[in-house]
Nucleic acid binder design. Structure first.
Length: 804
DNA sequence: GCTTAGGGTTTG
C-alpha cells in the first residue's frame, strides 16, 4: 500500500495539465488532466469487502470564492479501493487536493445546484495529491505493481508506507459503518441503511438467474423505500418473518424507477434482520458466518423499535389463528406441519395445525394412500384441529422442501368457504358447503408465500406451548380407559451404578426421588433414577394391545381359539353367493395339508387381473385359518370373506380383516363401516394394506405395547405405565412383536434383565427415566394421578439374562 | 458481471 509524499506541488507529474472543475463534462479524454480543489465534503469510508472500500467526497475549485453558489464550481468524487482508504485517513475537510486519472459520468444527483457530472477515481491510474497546511504536500496514490515511483521522493515514501499500513489494518478491524436516513438517498450512490419492514415477499424465482426478495422499508424520516434483493441462494436472503421486522442492509445501490427511489443489492451486499418488537432481545438473524454488530447497532434497533411502536400508520402484523379466522379472509397462519401429500403437479396438500379449534367445519381432503409424507391419520380429537391447506403453482417448490414437524408461517392464506372442488381429489361430503378450505394461491402478490420459522422464534415458542397442552389432553383422554396406579411404599437402598437407559427428551431437569414425584401436583414432567421392582403382565404377549387412533380405545388381541372358531364357522356357510360385479371368481383345490375345506372360492379385482397383478390381492372364502396362513406366502394381501344371505361380506371384525405375510390387521368395530369393495388401484404400483382397508371401510387398529412397571428407589416405589413410548423403550415395533418370535424374545429378555426373577443373583440395573404425570378418572369417576414413562430408551446392550 | 422486480389477491 504505497503512499508517497511530495514536498512541492511542482512534483505533480509533468505530463498532467490542469483543467478547471467547471469544465468537466463527458466526451473529452481526461487521461492527462488534473483538477485542483478544496475538500468541502467527505463521507465516512464504506467497506465493500476484505480489502475494498468506497468513499464519497466533494471538492470545490480553489480559484472560486469560498461561498460560491455556482453549481459547477464543485464536483463529487467517488474514490474506490485503497485510494478511498488512504484518502479517508490522510485528507481532512479544507485540504486542497489534486486529482487525476479519473473518469467522468453524469451526476446521479437530481438537485439543480450540483455539478451535472461526477468523478470516479478507480483503477491504477487514479491519483490524489494532497496539499494541506499541516501535512505539507502529501501525495496519496493508488499504484499498480508496475507503476513507477521514480518521480516520488523515496525517503519519505518508505516512512509513510509503514505508518499507513499498520494504521489501515487497525482501521479495518474497528470499522464504523455509516447509515443513510431514507430521505437522504442520492441516486447512484452505494449506501448502508436501517429500516422497519412495512411489506415483504419471501424470495421468489425471478425471470433472471436469481431469487428475488422484494420489500419496502421505512424509518424515522417516514420515507417508504422499495428494495429488491437479488441473490442466487435462498439461504443468503434476508430472514424476514413478519411486517415490523427491522432490517439492516450493507452496500445497496440507490436507483430510480418511475420517479421514486429504490434500493438494490450490490456486490458485497449483506443483510441482518431483527425482531421489531419493543422489549424482545436484540438478536441478529443472518446466515452469514461473520457480521458486524456493536452497541451502535443495538441502539439503532432499539430506536427504530420505539419509533415504530408509536406509528399508527404502519401495518400491524396479524395474529389470526384457526380459532379466529373468518371465512373468505386472507391471513397469515403460524402453524406446524403434520403431514403433506402431493395432489397433482401444481398442487400440494399441507396438513397443519396451530393447536386452536376452528369454529367452522374444516374441509376434509382424501388423498391417495401411500403418498402422504408423515402420518396418514391422527387421533379423532386432533383430526378436528387439522387444517388442510392446498398450496398451488410456484409455492409447490417451497412446499416440497418442507418436512412434517416444521413450524411454518404461511403468508396471505385464503380461508375459502364452501369449497368442494379440489383437483383430482374426492371431498368427503360434497354437500358440506360451509366447510373451510385453505388455499395458498399461485403468485406472490400480497407477499403470498411460505417460510419455515426457527425454533427460537417467539411465535413458535408460543405455538409449542399451545400444542403441548393439547397433546397432554390427548394423552389423558386416550388413557381414560387404561389402568390406574395406586402407589405403595417400599424402602430399598440404592446401589451406585450407571444407568442403562437414556432420556431423549430435552427437558433440563435434575433427577428427583419417587417420593418427591408422588408429592408433586399432576401435569408435570420428572426425571428419576430407578430400578424395576416388578412388572405386569408377566406373560408378555398379553402386553400387546390393539389401539384405535380414531376413537382412542384400546383392546386386547383376540384369543387365537376365538379366531379359529370364526374362520371355522365362516367356512361352513356354504349357501349360494354371487360375486360382486367388479370381481373375477374361481375355485381352487388345495392339498390336504394344511387342514381345511378342499373347495375354496377366490375373488380377484378385475382391474388388478388386467394389469397382471393378481398376486397382490385376493378375497378368500371358506378357508381355515391355517389355509389362509399358507396362502399368505403367495399373495400380498388376503381378505377373508364369507357368504351372508347370498352376499359376500367380511368376517366379524374380531377376526383379522387382512393378512399380509405374517402380519394380521384388525379393524375397529366402533369406527368401521365394513363392506366388500374393490380398492381403487389405478396407477398404484403396489397395493398397500391401508388402501385395502380404506376400500373396505375399515379403520385399522394399531398394535401397541402396554406394561405396568413398579419402580423403586431409596424413597419408595411407584407404579407407572410404559405405553406411548414403549416401542422407543424396547427399540422394537409392536407390530413386529405381534408377528415375530424374535421380537417377542427381545422384549422378554430385556424385561428379564431389567427385573431378574425372584431368587436370581443378578443385580437390578438402574435406569434414568422421564416420567409424565397426568390426571384421569378411575372407574368410580374420581380423579387419580397416572404416571407414564416417556422419552426413555435402552442405551446399552441389555445385560446378559440371569445365568441362574 | 450489473437481468431479474419495481407490492395491491386465484380463479384451483
Amino acid at each position: 500500500m504505497p503512499l508517497c509524499v511530495l514536498s512541492r506541488s511542482s512534483q505533480i507529474p509533468a505530463h498532467l495539465t490542469r483543467t478547471s472543475i467547471s469544465a468537466i463534462c463527458t466526451g473529452p479524454d481526461w487521461t492527462h488532466a488534473y483538477i485542483k480543489g478544496r475538500v468541502v465534503h467527505k463521507d465516512a469510508l464504506v467497506p465493500l469487502d476484505d480489502d475494498d472500500f468506497i468513499l464519497k467526497a466533494v471538492i470545490q475549485d480553489v480559484d472560486s470564492a469560498p461561498n460560491t453558489t455556482c453549481p459547477e464550481a464543485s464536483i463529487k468524487m467517488l474514490l474506490m479501493g485503497s485510494l478511498a482508504k488512504d484518502f479517508s485517513r490522510t485528507v481532512n475537510l479544507g485540504d486542497v487536493v489534486v486529482a487525476s486519472g479519473f473518469s467522468v459520468s453524469k451526476s446521479s444527483t437530481v438537485k439543480q445546484k450540483h455539478h451535472p457530472y461526477s468523478l470516479l477515481l478507480s483503477g491504477e491510474f487514479a491519483s490524489v495529491y494532497v496539499c494541506s497546511p499541516e501535512v505539507n504536500s502529501v501525495v496519496t496514490r493508488r499504484r499498480s505493481p508496475k507503476a513507477k515511483v521514480s518521480d516520488l521522493q523515496p525517503e519519505v515514501n518508505s516512512v509513510v508506507t509503514r505508518n499507513t499500513a499498520s494504521k489501515a489494518l487497525r482501521e479495518t478491524k474497528k470499522i464504523k459503518y455509516t447509515y443513510s436516513q431514507l430521505d437522504e438517498l442520492e441516486v447512484g450512490t452505494r449506501v448502508n441503511v436501517y429500516g422497519v419492514v412495512v411489506f415483504f415477499k419471501q424470495p421468489f424465482k425471478s425471470s433472471g438467474t436469481d431469487y428475488c426478495t422484494s420489500l419496502k422499508i421505512t424509518d424515522q424520516s417516514n420515507q417508504k423505500i422499495g428494495c429488491s434483493i437479488f441473490l442466487a441462494k435462498l439461504e443468503e436472503h434476508p430472514k424476514l418473518f413478519q411486517v415490523g421486522d427491522i432490517i439492516r442492509m450493507h452496500r445497496v445501490k440507490v436507483s430510480r424507477f418511475n420517479d421514486s427511489i429504490s434500493l438494490i443489492n450490490t456486490f458485497g451486499f449483506s443483510a441482518v434482520t431483527f425482531d421489531g418488537t419493543v422489549g424482545e432481545p436484540v438478536e441478529p438473524r443472518t446466515s452469514s458466518q461473520s457480521y458486524h454488530f456493536d452497541s451502535d447497532d443495538q441502539r439503532k434497533v432499539e430506536e427504530l423499535r420505539a419509533w415504530s411502536s408509536c406509528q399508527t400508520l404502519l401495518p400491524v402484523p396479524c395474529s389470526t389463528t384457526l380459532s379466529t379466522v373468518q371465512p373468505s379472509a386472507y391471513f397469515d397462519l403460524t402453524c406446524q406441519l403434520l403431514a403433506k401429500a402431493p395432489i397433482d403437479s401444481s398442487c400440494v396438500l399441507l396438513r397443519v395445525w396451530d393447536g386452536t379449534r376452528c369454529p367452522h367445519p374444516l374441509l376434509k381432503v382424501l388423498v391417495e394412500p401411500g403418498v402422504t409424507d408423515g402420518p396418514s391419520s391422527f387421533s379423532h380429537e386432533r383430526e378436528n384441529l387439522i387444517a388442510n391447506v392446498l398450496v398451488y403453482d410456484n409455492h409447490v417448490e417451497v412446499a416440497s422442501q418442507l418436512k412434517p414437524g416444521d413450524f411454518l408461517r404461511i403468508y396471505n392464506l385464503r380461508a375459502f368457504p364452501g369449497s368442494n372442488k379440489v383437483p383430482g381429489v374426492a371431498c368427503s361430503h360434497p354437500a358440506e358447503q360451509d366447510h373451510l378450505a385453505f388455499h395458498l394461491h399461485g403468485g406472490t402478490t400480497y407477499g403470498r408465500g411460505i417460510k419455515v420459522l426457527p425454533q427460537t422464534n417467539s411465535a413458535v415458542q408460543e405455538l409449542k406451548r399451545v400444542i403441548e397442552g393439547f397433546i397432554q389432553e390427548e394423552d389423558n383422554s386416550a388413557m381414560m380407559e387404561v389402568w390406574g396406579t395406586p402407589p405403595e411404599s417400599i424402602n430399598t437402598m440404592p446401589m451406585s451404578t450407571d444407568s442403562i437407559t437414556e432420556t431423549t427428551c430435552r427437558h433440563n431437569l435434575d433427577s428427583v426421588t419417587l417420593s418427591e414425584v408422588k408429592r408433586s401436583n399432576p401435569g408435570q414432567v420428572h426425571h428419576v433414577r430407578v430400578q424395576i421392582k416388578s412388572y405386569q403382565p408377566q406373560k408378555l404377549h398379553q402386553s400387546l394391545k390393539l389401539f384405535c387412533d380414531k376413537c382412542s380405545t384400546m383392546q386386547d388381541l383376540p384369543d387365537e381359539d376365538h379366531v379359529l372358531g370364526l374362520f371355522s364357522a365362516a367356512s361352513h356357510d356354504m349357501g349360494p353367493c354371487s360375486a360382486p360385479v367388479w370381481a373375477l371368481s374361481g375355485q381352487v383345490q388345495l392339498p390336504s395339508e394344511p387342514a381345511g375345506p378342499s373347495d375354496l372360492s377366490l375373488y380377484f379385482s378385475s382391474q388388478l387381473m388386467s394389469e397382471g397383478k393378481n398376486k397382490q390381492l385376493m378375497f378368500l372364502k371358506g378357508a381355515s385359518l391355517a389355509q389362509v396362513k399358507t396362502l399368505s406366502a403367495s399373495y400380498l394381501n388376503i381378505v377373508p370373506v364369507r357368504s351372508t344371505g347370498g352376499q359376500l361380506t367380511l368376517l366379524d371384525l374380531s377376526a383379522p380383516v387382512l393378512f399380509r405375510g405374517r402380519r394380521r390387521f384388525y379393524g375397529c368395530k366402533k369406527c368401521s363401516n365394513p363392506a366388500v369393495r374393490e380398492p381403487s388401484v389405478e396407477g398404484v404400483e403396489e397395493v398397500s394394506g391401508q388402501l385395502v382397508a380404506e376400500a373396505l371401510g375399515v379403520e385399522l387398529l394399531r398394535y401397541v405395547l402396554l406394561l405396568r412397571l413398579e419402580l423403586q428407589d431409596s424413597s419408595g416405589s411407584l407404579d407407572v405405565l410404559l405405553w406411548r413410548d414403549a416401542e422407543l423403550f424396547f427399540n422394537v415395533s409392536a407390530a413386529d412383536a405381534a408377528s415375530s418370535q424374535e421380537a417377542q424374545n427381545h422384549i422378554c429378555q430385556t424385561m428379564n434383565s431389567l427385573c431378574p426373577p425372584e431368587g436370581s443373583k443378578a443385580r437390578r440395573p438402574w435406569l434414568d427415566m422421564c416420567l409424565v404425570s397426568y390426571q384421569t378418572k378411575d372407574d368410580g369417576g374420581s380423579n387419580e394421578t397416572v404416571y407414564q414413562i416417556c422419552h426413555t430408551t435402552l442405551s446399552k446392550a441389555s445385560p446378559e439374562p440371569d445365568p441362574a
